[in-house]
């Protein structure tokens, strides 16, 4: 691996752990949906660094558009805040 890939791998792993912890921790479900979208964004960069651009393409298309819309419609039909 070159230096650039090492820098990007470290940054994206830190972002991945932070966003995953955030998605589990929050009580407001809209914030959890946004954190899931960030996870899909960073995961696409990880697939790209591992030289699999086809998987990164699929992850981009599904993660940022389709799963966000499905989660938002689900939250709209149930309720926004998790029980304490």
């Amino acid at each position: 691996m070159t230096n650039i890939e090492i820098i990007l791998t470290i940054v994206s792993l830190v972002l991945l752990i932070i966003a995953g912890f955030f998605a589990v921790q929050k009580k407001d479900l809209i914030h959890a949906v946004i954190a899931t979208s960030v996870i899909s964004l960073v995961l696409s960069l990880m697939f790209y660094l591992l030289q699999a651009p086809d998987v990164a393409l699929t992850e981009a298309a599904i993660g940022i558009a389709l799963s966000t819309i499905i989660f938002i419609i689900t939250v709209r039909n149930t309720k926004r805040f998790e029980d304490k």
Binding site: I30, A60, A61, I64, A65, T68
Partner: peptide, 16 residues
């Protein structure tokens, strides 16, 4: 990959 991001990236933001 970046072309797909540029085309589809705004749909999630508009939905939220």
């Amino acid at each position: 990959v970046s072309l797909v991001y540029a085309v589809l990236g705004f749909i999630g933001v508009i939905t939220i």
